[in-house]
Structures are given as C-alpha cells and as structure tokens.
Design a protein around this nucleic acid. Structure first.
Length: 710
DNA sequence: CATCACGCTGTTTTT
DNA sequence: CAGCGTGATG
C-alpha cells in the first residue's frame, strides 16, 4: 500500500532511498532536493512495513528538524510515527547517560553545563591554580573554553589544537593542559558534563561496554542520520556503534553545505562512510524542487569556484524566474533602507511577510536593519545569536527550579546564593559544601553554622521558597510562579531594563503550562533551548519577517531571501584577512544562504563597510565581496548600484617580515592573531617595529609609508 | 569578603 | 560599546 502511495509523490531516486530496507545507505542530497521529505517518507514506510517506531532512531541537527520530519511522517501514515526516537545527538546522549552514567563513575543525576557554566568554571580554576602571570597575557576564558571544547570534539590534544588554530598561544600549552586537567577533574568530582562530554561519554559507553552496545544496537534497529556532513568524528563513531549489530543505517548529507567545522564537524565523514561500509548503497538526489533555475545557476557557479569538488550539480524544472540581484549600497544604513524598501515592494506585490527572510553571517550584522525595520513598523522575529535562554535573568529563574530537582547542581547554587546580601563566591562555596553534607540542609539554610545575623534571614527566605517549589513539582507553572515572585526583588536591583525582562520571564511561565512535571520542563529547556522567542510562541511567526543567521536558517526556505553580507560592522576584524580555509567556509555559508530562496534572491553589500569606510582602506581586494562575485559570469546575475559609484579603491596592506599582514586604523595597529599593537619604534620610512602586548612579542613590519597613508 | 568604579580590550557561527 | 579584569574602598 505504501509503495503505491509513495510512488506518485516521489522521484525515482527518492523512492529508492525510501524503500531501501536493510543495510547501509548513503544519500547525497543537494540543497532543496527533498531531503526532509525523503526521510519523512522513509520513516512512514518503515513503520508501515511493520517496524515498531520504538526500534527507529532519527538523529538530526536540531530538535525542530526532528519533530518536523516526524510530523510529516505521521500525516502520511498515522500518529505512531511520532513515537520514533528523534532528536539531536546531544539529547540522545543525555537520555542514555541518564541511565548508564554510573558505569562511567557519574551519578545518574549529573547536571549539564552550558557554555557559560563552562566558562565560569574555567575562570574560577584559573584563579585557583594561579596560572596567570603578570607579564604574560592569558587567553580569555571564552577562548580557553573554545580550545578545550575543540580538543574534545576533535579527539585531539591541547597541543595539536594550539598548533593548528592558536599558534600565538602555543607557549602556554603546559598551563592550558594543566587547566584542562583541572577542569575535567572538577566536572567529575561535581558530577557535571558539558555538551562535549555528552558525546564523549556516550561514545565511551558504546566502546567499552559491549553489553550496552548490544542493548542499544538491538533497540535502534533502523538508524537515520540527517545533515551527516555536519557531524564530527565522535558522532560518526557513535552512529557506527549503534548500527554495529544490524548495519541498518542511513545517512543523508550534502558536502557543499558543511558549515560547522568550527565545532569539529568534518564533511569527510561522508566519504568515510563508504570506507567503513564498503557495501553501502549510494543514492544522489540532484533534482531541486525549491529554487528557480536562475537561482540555481548562480549557486552552482558560486560553489564551483571552490577548490574542493562537490558531488553534484543541481538542476530544476522551474526554468523561469528572475535573476538574482546584487545590490551594492554605500553604507550599512543605506543598505538597511534599501532592504526595507524592497520588502515593502514585495508586500505590495502580494507576497506575505512570512515568505521573506533576511539572512546574515553573524547576529550583530542585522542590528542596523532592525532599527530600520522598527522605524518602518515591519514586524520580525530573529533566530540565532545569543539565546534567549542564555540571558542572565532566565538562567537565574531556572536555577531555583534546578536546585530543587537536583541538589547537586553546583552552578545553579552559585547563582542563587550570590544574590543574597553579603554572600559572594567564597561563602557560596562554603554553603554548597555544607549542603553536600546533608541534602536536607537546603530546606533549613538558615541553620548554616557560619551564618551571621543579617544572613540567616535571607537564607531562611530562600529555603522557604525552595520548599514551596518542592511541594509543587507536579505543577511546573505554579512552581515557577513561586520562584518568580521570590526572584523579582533581585531582578529589579540587578537590571535597569527589568520590565522587559519581566515580560520574558512571564513568557517562560506560560510555556510551563504545557508540562505536568517540573523535571521534564526544565530538562527540555536545557537540552533544546528555543532559538528565538518565536519558538515559544508560534503565533509570532505567522505574520513576521524572519531574520536569521545562516546557521540557524538551515533546513528552512522562503520565497524571497535577502542576504546582507558585511565583513564587519565595527572595525575590520581579523576576519577581514581570510586564510584559504576560512574563505572556503565563508563561501559555503553564502551558498547555504542562497539556496534557501525559492523565487527571489537579493544579495546586498555595503561597499563602505568592506571593511569600514571613513578612515578606510580595503584589505586585500581578493578578500572582499568582489571575490565571491567576480568569478561568477555576469550573465548569471543582475547588478544594481546604489552606492553612487563610490566603490573604494583597495590598498595593499603591509606584510611583516614574519609574513603576517597588519593594518592600521586610527591609532591602532592590528594583527590578525595578536590583536592590537603599538608602534614601538620607527626605524625608517619603510620599517616600523610593533609591540603586541597580547603575546609580548615585537614584530618588524615593512612599508610604514603605506600604513601612514592609511 | 563583597562591592563599586574605572580602564582596557576586541569583536562568528551552535548543541 | 559592552563585558571583563583590576584595584581601591567599605
């Protein structure tokens, strides 16, 4: 029955992927080639063939992607499709480790650290270990966390990561290694896992415990993995272990769309798949159902500039359509105005707002546009950038719930104790230690032996609140309300803009009504945080324009896509000097952004901001927009000049004797890796010596005259 | 030991 | 421009 039904709605390649039953399968699926559709149909097909949803595992990149596919499958077949185990690698790992963590020496109720928690720990360990010396500058805690995280994700040593990506910190390798060890130790001692640990320990579990491997592999008899090009080695291995007893594994991906290398993703996993499973069936999906041919011609040309060779070239039957437009404006402000005006134009042609999106590389690139949209009264929702859930007030509020759920949640304790008057990091730690001696202490915090007069009152109030939350574990909404009314006092003194934050907290409270158990509510929020307020309130998206980073826009599509591509806003960052690898990544980002458009593609760039204009010079002409565009045949797009013809002339930048490029802006001399420097000596017209405090290094640079001109 | 004020620094992307 | 670290003050 299913076969008959599906035959008419799928093309031959898709159908082949859908009805494939046992054995490894690699689907190379270009953008817009019906990947989601294929997976959804396959889930429905398997279930229709009598496979229990319980035995199917669907791994995706976001929770949203998983539920979309399962929704679709269930509308094809029936509601049973929703019972399929689906979600991110991280959420699966969490679920499984919740059960088996004791085998690895963790408590079952370990808690999960987000990035900020990780940085906080790194920070306090840094002080504790006295690793910082006065003379030598240490990387920021966020940089350190990046290094540690990357090493974990790549399964490499700190040394290797430093060599590869942070050569300017290579001399700190010993200290960073010591710090990393301390961090690992701290997490173990306090039963904490960060995001990377979830994957790492899941793999360890599968590697070292053959019985668990057996149990899990038997349970997940059909494993489907989406966006395989964005998995890292650990994830690839996890998949292999999960499939080891049956080899019923399907991976779907597109090597040209791999944009997560910064977190260790390796598109070569695609090629490796064939090596690991030499008998894998390979299916290519090259027909695009999304974009018009002019848009595809443009994107094909864009990605074919790449040194890497990709496995497919997209084509479509939608042969008509307008050409992509390249719109050059003078400044970013003019760009924002141009975008707004064009949005109004499309609106007047009858295209609804929800069919339009503006995409960009980094969250802050849309700031100016957001101002303009507000002025024009165009409603929008924004995806990407900092998470709603990561904002301090929300983490604060959740902390009260988290400690009730799990007394060992150190990070939450630190937060909420710190709010109390006269209690800072040191006393907090003492109280936490005291709580650890007897968990019941949390409901009688005022009995803390070292409490001073003023403190015990506050502690008692906190205890009472926690007690009331505990009594309402079965009613999350009420529990949060209790936490909320207690927390209000701190909210007001902590934030000037508290009315806005209060509203956001109320939004969280309203979300809680969908749950009947406090624990599952909080766990859901931690492991799949909403990426914008729109995720919590679907109505918001109905009549709004979408603004999104390219990363958050993956898997979505719109009729009209506006891309605003700036290299930087404030001043030329190190990003302006791209090395080949970064440039490659930049191009893929642009490619992914372009392929989201069904009918209209408009790419805007401000010539003045490439990089910033006024006191400006352009870095290498090869690094600017024109380098994306110039290799693309001009007959593939339409160029619109709103810049008044004022395209800045590129200057070549000085090259230091170490081969590095530096540039000067105002009174600052910038180096791509070392950051800001000061001119310590002017040797002659052509040579200067620059001192970089960040690394304590002096560099000799040529062509001072060039710098001065700038 | 907590808190506040000032000055320096340096710009992504996500689970 | 905002977040961070430092150092002085209570």
């Amino acid at each position: 029955m299913a076969y008959e039904l599906f035959k008419n709605s799928l093309n031959p390649s898709q159908l082949e992927a859908v009805v494939h039953m046992d054995g490894p399968l690699l689907v190379i699926a270009g953008a817009g080639s019906g990947k989601t559709r294929t997976i959804a149909y396959r889930v429905a097909y398997l279930i229709e063939k009598g496979i229990s949803p319980y035995n199917i595992l669907l791994l995706t990149f976001t929770k949203r992607a998983a539920s979309e596919m399962l929704d679709r499958a269930s509308s094809l077949l029936n509601r049973r499709c929703k019972e399929v185990e689906g979600g991110t690698f991280h959420s699966l790992a969490y679920k499984i480790l919740r059960q088996y963590a004791p085998l690895l020496g963790f408590r079952r109720d370990f808690s999960v650290l987000d990035r900020q928690d990780m940085e906080d720990i790194v920070h306090s360990l840094l002080d504790e270990l006295r690793l910082k010396e006065e003379k030598v500058r240490f990387p920021k805690k966020s940089t350190i966390s990046n290094i540690i995280s990357k090493a974990s994700n790549l399964q490499k040593g700190i040394d290797q990561v430093l060599d590869l990506e942070y050569p300017h910190f290579a001399h700190l390798s010993e200290r960073l290694k010591k710090l990393t060890r301390a961090y690992e130790e701290y997490k173990r001692k306090n039963h904490l896992m960060d995001y990377d640990d979830l994957l790492k320990f899941m793999l360890k579990l599968l590697e070292e415990f053959s019985d668990i491997r057996g149990i899990l592999s038997d349970r997940f008899r059909y494993v489907l993995v989406d966006e395989y090009q964005d998995t890292n080695r650990i994830q690839a291995k996890i998949v292999q272990y999960l499939a080891y007893s049956h080899r019923n594994i399907m991976v779907v991906g597109d090597d040209a769309q791999s944009i997560y290398s910064f977190r260790g993703a390796d598109y070569r996993n695609m090629a490796d798949f064939i090596r690991v499973f030499p008998d894998a069936k390979i299916i290519k999906l090259e027909q695009n159902y999304r974009s018009t041919q002019p848009i595809l011609n443009f994107t094909n040309a864009l990605i074919n500039q790449s040194k890497e060779s990709f496995t497919k070239c997209l084509y479509t039957k939608r042969s008509n359509g307008r050409f992509p437009k390249l719109i050059e404006t003078h400044t970013e402000a003019e760009q924002a105005m141009a975008v707004c005006r064009d949005i109004q134009q499309y609106l007047s042609e009858g295209i609804p707002l929800r069919e339009m999106a503006v995409l960009f590389r980094a969250a802050y690139h849309s700031f100016e546009l957001e101002v303009e949209l507000a002025k024009e009264g165009i409603p929008y929702v924004k995806y990407g950038g900092f998470k709603f859930l990561e904002s301090a007030h929300i983490k604060d509020l959740l902390s009260y719930l988290r400690v009730v759920i799990n007394v060992n949640d150190i990070m939450s304790w630190r937060r909420i104790l710190n709010f109390l008057k006269q209690i800072g990091p040191v006393k907090s730690q003492k109280i936490i230690d005291w709580i650890k001696m007897d968990e019941q202490n949390i409901y009688q915090l005022d009995r803390w032996p070292e409490a001073k007069k003023g403190e015990s009152g506050h502690l008692k109030e906190l205890s009472n609140t926690l007690k009331k939350i505990r009594e309402n574990m079965g009613n999350p909404q009420k529990a949060i309300k209790i936490a909320f009314s207690y927390y209000m006092q701190f909210l007001e003194q902590r934030f000037d803009d508290y009315p806005k934050r209060k509203k956001e907290l109320e939004q969280i409270i309203s979300m809680a009504s969908r749950y009947n158990n406090l624990k599952s509510f909080v766990e859901d929020l931690i492991l799949s945080p909403p990426s914008s307020t729109a995720d919590m309130d679907p109505d918001l998206r109905k009549e709004s324009l979408v603004l999104s980073t390219v990363h958050s826009a993956k898997g979505l599509e719109w009729s009209v896509v506006f891309i605003i591509w700036a290299m930087d806003g404030y001043f030329p960052s190190t990003k302006a000097l791209l090395n080949e690898q970064e440039y490659e990544e930049e191009r893929r980002l642009m490619y992914v952004a372009c392929t989201r458009a069904r009918d209209e593609l408009r790419i805007y760039f401000p010539s003045d901001e490439w990089p910033r204009a006024s006191n400006s010079f352009s870095i290498h002409s090869g690094d600017t927009m024109s380098s994306f565009i110039s290799p693309i045949p001009t007959e593939l797009y339409e160029y619109i000049d709103l810049s008044g013809g004022k395209i800045p002339v590129s200057h070549k930048i000085t090259v230091g004797i170490d081969g590095s490029k530096i540039w000067k802006i105002g009174d600052r001399v910038m180096h791509p890796a070392f950051g800001r420097g000061v001119i310590s000596k002017v040797i002659d017209e052509d040579r200067i010596e620059v001192f970089f405090k960040s690394v304590g290094v002096k560099l000799l640079h040529l062509s001072y005259t060039q710098l001065q001109k700038i």
